[in-house]
Design a protein around this nucleic acid. Sequence first.
DNA 1: ACTAGTGCGGTAATTAAATGA
DNA 2: ATCATTTAATTACCGCACTAG
Lengths: 212, 212
Amino acid sequence: MNHQVADDEMVLITQYYPGIYTQLVPQQGESKLRRRRKKNKGEGSGSGAMMMRKRKLSDEQVNLLEQSFGNEHKPESERKDKLASELGLDPRQVAVWFQNRRARWKSKKLEEEYSKLKSEHDTNVVEKCRLETEVMKLKEQLLEAEKEIQRLLLERFDGVSSNTSPSMSSFLMEAAMEPPFLGEFGMDGLDNVFYAPDNNYVQGLDWVNLYI
Amino acid sequence: MNHQVADDEMVLITQYYPGIYTQLVPQQGESKLRRRRKKNKGEGSGSGAMMMRKRKLSDEQVNLLEQSFGNEHKPESERKDKLASELGLDPRQVAVWFQNRRARWKSKKLEEEYSKLKSEHDTNVVEKCRLETEVMKLKEQLLEAEKEIQRLLLERFDGVSSNTSPSMSSFLMEAAMEPPFLGEFGMDGLDNVFYAPDNNYVQGLDWVNLYI
DNA sequence: ACTAGTGCGGTAATTAAATGA
DNA sequence: ATCATTTAATTACCGCACTAG
């Protein structure tokens, strides 16, 4: 009960209001090639110099506006004017409403995209970790296999290093002779495309609440 | 030189303004354990109902406010009051300014965090792709190695399937007998921790400009 | 319990700069 | 190139919630 001075009451304000945008403008054909009247002649609607300013649209007004926004975020001026007359609002107010609504929509979208991206990112981090482990494991197995092959070959020829499939053996050699457990795997053709910050710290949305 | 219409002019407005917030509060000791009782006495300051309201802070005022914001995002009331008197502003305006500034800072921070996260995410996607390829390659090699081992073993015993190191062989078997070229690798212990949308579409920031 | 003070989210409105026809 | 519209940034206010005395 501390500040109900003039909640959604009228507040007297000396404010020039944008013209009346009366729909009784001589309709000059097109929908996009007219409309000016910024230098409003204050007398319009309110007639007196003072205008009443309602601060906060009624639920009904908001509902209709919101519904229209659902249909199209950026309606034509004609649509806006029609809305204005239907709602008993100044066309200017409707225009302003849509502008602010778009801005709101945008930042909301940003937040949504952020959390979506965040969860995606997190799964990828986990996945990446798993893949790295997988690679290490496979390299180790490959090394063991190669050792086994060497053992079998040596056992067979006892000192001679000629085998039956040289191309495959060298192919295996190449892979198995890499130093295992390294975490980096060549960066074959994708160097320097992105810098890799590699900071896998997963912070929540807490930063929004700490200033400094 | 295009918009000096009435930049920092005055506009008459009927607005009750919160009291004067005199800075002559008796300082009661601590820095964190006081602060309450601003006793603003509403009718104060303006007393007359009409107030002058400057419609846009001067550069100087904004500069000082911005500087203060750099020091601390959420200054004490006393600090705000001091600022107000230094700048010739209503303490209310200063409070409002800080509030709006914080909101702005927050959404800006959100945008920054978003693009940071985005680039991180992109590098991870690339990395993940690379690792998957690596895994496939290694599995293939492992399969080849296992075939080679089988070949050598068969060649040696000609029909009998007893080898010299059974544990290692089964260990290799397990890995090499998985169907290669599959793109999924077990999901060992990490199932259902995160749902994996797996949509690697990399959209830019274009969505911000398309409504509908 | 009561009350004042503050922060925050949401919203309305205005202005400057960018864009478009 | 003027005029109209849109976006981004600002300023301000309300309503709610929380906190502290």
